[in-house]
Simulated assay, not measured.
Amino acid sequence: MEFRTDRLFIRPFRSTDLQDVFDIYKDDDTCRYLLHDRWTFEDRQEKFNKKVKNSSLSKETMLSLAVVHETKVIGDLSVWYTDMKDTVEIGYSFSSEISGRGYATEAVGNLVKKLFDEFHVHRIQAQLDARNTSSQKLCERIGMRKEAHFIKNYWNKEEWTDSIIYGMLLSDLKES
Protein backbone atom coordinates (compact mmCIF):
# COMPACT_ATOMS: atom_id res chain seq x y z
CA MET A 1 0.00 0.00 0.00
CA GLU A 2 1.24 3.45 -0.84
CA PHE A 3 -0.58 6.72 -1.31
CA ARG A 4 -0.19 10.47 -1.32
CA THR A 5 -1.96 13.11 0.72
CA ASP A 6 -1.77 16.86 0.23
CA ARG A 7 1.69 17.08 1.82
CA LEU A 8 2.83 13.51 2.44
CA PHE A 9 3.86 10.31 0.68
CA ILE A 10 2.99 7.16 2.62
CA ARG A 11 4.74 3.98 1.54
CA PRO A 12 6.45 0.82 2.80
CA PHE A 13 9.83 1.37 4.43
CA ARG A 14 13.00 1.23 2.33
CA SER A 15 16.51 0.34 3.48
CA THR A 16 17.53 3.97 2.92
CA ASP A 17 15.09 5.10 5.64
CA LEU A 18 17.16 3.72 8.52
CA GLN A 19 18.66 6.99 9.78
CA ASP A 20 15.37 8.92 9.64
CA VAL A 21 13.57 6.16 11.54
CA PHE A 22 16.37 5.91 14.08
CA ASP A 23 16.06 9.68 14.61
CA ILE A 24 12.40 9.13 15.55
CA TYR A 25 12.91 6.18 17.89
CA LYS A 26 16.13 7.25 19.63
CA ASP A 27 14.13 10.00 21.36
CA ASP A 28 13.04 9.23 24.93
CA ASP A 29 10.01 11.54 24.67
CA THR A 30 8.77 9.80 21.51
CA CYS A 31 9.09 6.37 23.14
CA ARG A 32 7.74 7.36 26.56
CA TYR A 33 4.28 5.84 25.98
CA LEU A 34 5.26 3.10 23.53
CA LEU A 35 5.66 -0.54 24.49
CA HIS A 36 9.38 -0.47 23.72
CA ASP A 37 12.29 1.62 24.94
CA ARG A 38 14.13 4.02 22.70
CA TRP A 39 16.31 2.48 20.03
CA THR A 40 20.05 2.37 20.56
CA PHE A 41 22.75 2.57 17.94
CA GLU A 42 23.49 -1.10 18.59
CA ASP A 43 19.93 -2.42 18.05
CA ARG A 44 18.67 0.01 15.43
CA GLN A 45 19.38 -2.17 12.37
CA GLU A 46 17.65 -5.23 13.83
CA LYS A 47 14.57 -3.23 14.85
CA PHE A 48 14.45 -1.38 11.55
CA ASN A 49 14.69 -4.61 9.54
CA LYS A 50 11.41 -5.76 11.12
CA LYS A 51 9.69 -2.64 9.78
CA VAL A 52 11.08 -3.21 6.28
CA LYS A 53 9.75 -6.81 6.33
CA ASN A 54 6.22 -5.61 7.22
CA SER A 55 5.41 -4.49 3.69
CA SER A 56 1.89 -5.88 3.24
CA LEU A 57 -1.22 -6.29 5.35
CA SER A 58 -2.76 -9.72 5.69
CA LYS A 59 -4.36 -11.77 8.45
CA GLU A 60 -0.86 -13.07 9.25
CA THR A 61 1.31 -10.01 8.63
CA MET A 62 1.49 -6.50 10.01
CA LEU A 63 1.91 -3.52 7.70
CA SER A 64 4.45 -0.81 8.53
CA LEU A 65 4.45 2.40 6.50
CA ALA A 66 6.82 5.34 6.31
CA VAL A 67 5.31 8.82 6.39
CA VAL A 68 7.49 10.96 4.15
CA HIS A 69 7.47 14.76 3.97
CA GLU A 70 9.54 16.02 1.06
CA THR A 71 12.46 13.55 1.30
CA LYS A 72 12.48 12.79 5.04
CA VAL A 73 10.65 10.05 6.95
CA ILE A 74 8.78 11.89 9.72
CA GLY A 75 6.49 9.13 10.92
CA ASP A 76 5.69 5.46 11.16
CA LEU A 77 2.23 3.91 10.74
CA SER A 78 1.43 0.32 11.69
CA VAL A 79 -1.69 -1.74 10.99
CA TRP A 80 -2.50 -5.31 12.00
CA TYR A 81 -5.57 -7.51 12.09
CA THR A 82 -6.92 -8.43 15.50
CA ASP A 83 -8.58 -11.74 16.34
CA MET A 84 -12.01 -10.21 15.66
CA LYS A 85 -13.40 -10.52 12.13
CA ASP A 86 -12.53 -7.62 9.80
CA THR A 87 -11.05 -5.54 12.64
CA VAL A 88 -7.66 -3.85 12.54
CA GLU A 89 -5.64 -1.99 15.11
CA ILE A 90 -3.48 0.97 14.20
CA GLY A 91 -0.40 2.42 15.81
CA TYR A 92 1.71 5.43 14.92
CA SER A 93 4.78 7.38 15.93
CA PHE A 94 6.02 10.70 14.63
CA SER A 95 9.16 12.75 14.94
CA SER A 96 8.92 15.27 17.76
CA GLU A 97 10.44 17.80 15.34
CA ILE A 98 7.20 18.05 13.34
CA SER A 99 4.77 18.30 16.24
CA GLY A 100 1.89 20.73 15.85
CA ARG A 101 1.88 20.95 12.05
CA GLY A 102 -0.98 18.54 11.35
CA TYR A 103 1.12 15.87 9.64
CA ALA A 104 0.04 13.10 12.03
CA THR A 105 -3.63 13.96 11.60
CA GLU A 106 -3.21 14.05 7.82
CA ALA A 107 -1.36 10.71 7.70
CA VAL A 108 -3.52 8.74 10.14
CA GLY A 109 -6.77 10.25 8.84
CA ASN A 110 -5.93 9.20 5.30
CA LEU A 111 -4.79 5.78 6.47
CA VAL A 112 -8.15 5.00 8.08
CA LYS A 113 -9.95 6.07 4.88
CA LYS A 114 -7.74 3.67 2.88
CA LEU A 115 -8.40 0.84 5.32
CA PHE A 116 -12.16 1.28 4.99
CA ASP A 117 -12.10 1.82 1.21
CA GLU A 118 -9.49 -0.69 0.06
CA PHE A 119 -9.43 -3.36 2.76
CA HIS A 120 -13.14 -3.10 3.59
CA VAL A 121 -12.48 -3.42 7.31
CA HIS A 122 -15.47 -3.31 9.62
CA ARG A 123 -13.72 -1.62 12.54
CA ILE A 124 -10.50 0.24 13.31
CA GLN A 125 -9.22 0.57 16.83
CA ALA A 126 -6.26 2.04 18.70
CA GLN A 127 -5.07 1.15 22.18
CA LEU A 128 -2.90 3.70 23.92
CA ASP A 129 -1.36 4.68 27.20
CA ALA A 130 -3.90 6.92 28.94
CA ARG A 131 -1.19 9.49 29.72
CA ASN A 132 -0.62 10.07 26.02
CA THR A 133 -2.98 13.01 25.60
CA SER A 134 -1.52 13.91 22.18
CA SER A 135 -2.49 10.50 20.84
CA GLN A 136 -5.96 10.78 22.36
CA LYS A 137 -6.48 14.14 20.63
CA LEU A 138 -5.30 12.68 17.32
CA CYS A 139 -7.79 9.80 17.57
CA GLU A 140 -10.59 12.27 18.27
CA ARG A 141 -9.56 14.59 15.41
CA ILE A 142 -9.89 11.78 12.87
CA GLY A 143 -13.32 10.73 14.17
CA MET A 144 -12.53 7.90 16.57
CA ARG A 145 -14.50 7.62 19.77
CA LYS A 146 -13.17 6.75 23.21
CA GLU A 147 -14.73 3.40 24.09
CA ALA A 148 -12.91 2.23 27.20
CA HIS A 149 -10.53 3.37 29.92
CA PHE A 150 -8.89 0.52 31.81
CA ILE A 151 -7.29 1.32 35.16
CA LYS A 152 -3.76 0.03 35.76
CA ASN A 153 -4.35 -2.93 33.45
CA TYR A 154 -1.05 -2.99 31.58
CA TRP A 155 2.43 -3.69 32.97
CA ASN A 156 4.93 -1.74 30.88
CA LYS A 157 8.39 -0.38 31.62
CA GLU A 158 8.28 -1.48 35.26
CA GLU A 159 4.94 0.16 36.10
CA TRP A 160 1.22 -0.45 35.89
CA THR A 161 -0.38 1.91 33.39
CA ASP A 162 -3.93 2.77 32.37
CA SER A 163 -4.92 2.13 28.78
CA ILE A 164 -7.58 3.66 26.59
CA ILE A 165 -9.28 2.08 23.60
CA TYR A 166 -10.48 4.22 20.71
CA GLY A 167 -12.57 2.78 17.90
CA MET A 168 -14.40 3.71 14.73
CA LEU A 169 -16.64 2.29 12.07
CA LEU A 170 -17.00 3.56 8.53
CA SER A 171 -20.09 5.47 9.67
CA ASP A 172 -17.91 7.40 12.15
CA LEU A 173 -15.54 8.67 9.50
CA LYS A 174 -15.60 12.47 9.41
CA GLU A 175 -15.96 14.11 6.07
CA SER A 176 -12.86 16.04 5.09
Rank of each mutant, 00 (worst) to 15 (best):
F41L: 14
T30V: 15
R32C: 04
K72G: 03
I24N: 04
T40M: 05
D29C: 01
D20I: 08
R44D: 06
L34R: 01
E60V: 02
E70N: 14
V52N: 04
D43P: 01
K50F: 07
F22C: 00
R32M: 11
F48D: 05
W39K: 04
L65H: 06
D43E: 13
H36V: 09
D29I: 08
S64F: 04
V68F: 01
I74E: 03
C31R: 05
K50T: 12
L63A: 05
V73Y: 04
E60Y: 02
F22D: 01
R32H: 05
S58V: 04
E60M: 06
N49S: 14
S56R: 10
V21D: 04
H69I: 09
T40D: 06
K26P: 00
N49D: 14
D37E: 15
D27W: 04
L18D: 00
D20N: 15
C31S: 12
D23F: 00
L34M: 10
T30I: 15
E42N: 08
R44S: 15
H36T: 13
L63N: 05
E70W: 06
Y25N: 07
T61Q: 15
D37Y: 11
E70H: 11
K47S: 06
I74K: 07
N54L: 00
T71H: 10
Y25W: 13
R44T: 11
E70K: 15
V52M: 05
L34T: 06
N49T: 12
L65C: 01
L65N: 02
R32F: 05
C31I: 03
K26N: 11
V73M: 10
L65G: 00
R38L: 07
E60I: 03
E46I: 08
L63I: 06
T30R: 04
D23Q: 08
E60T: 09
D23H: 08
D28T: 07
K26G: 03
K51N: 02
A66E: 13
F22W: 07
V73N: 09
I74H: 03
Q19T: 10
I74S: 01
S64M: 08
V52I: 14
K26C: 10
L18F: 06
K51Q: 12
L35N: 07
T61R: 13
L65F: 08
K47V: 01
Q19S: 08
E70V: 15
D20L: 06
T71C: 08
E46A: 14
F48Q: 09
K51C: 05
G75Y: 01
H36W: 12
V52E: 02
A66L: 08
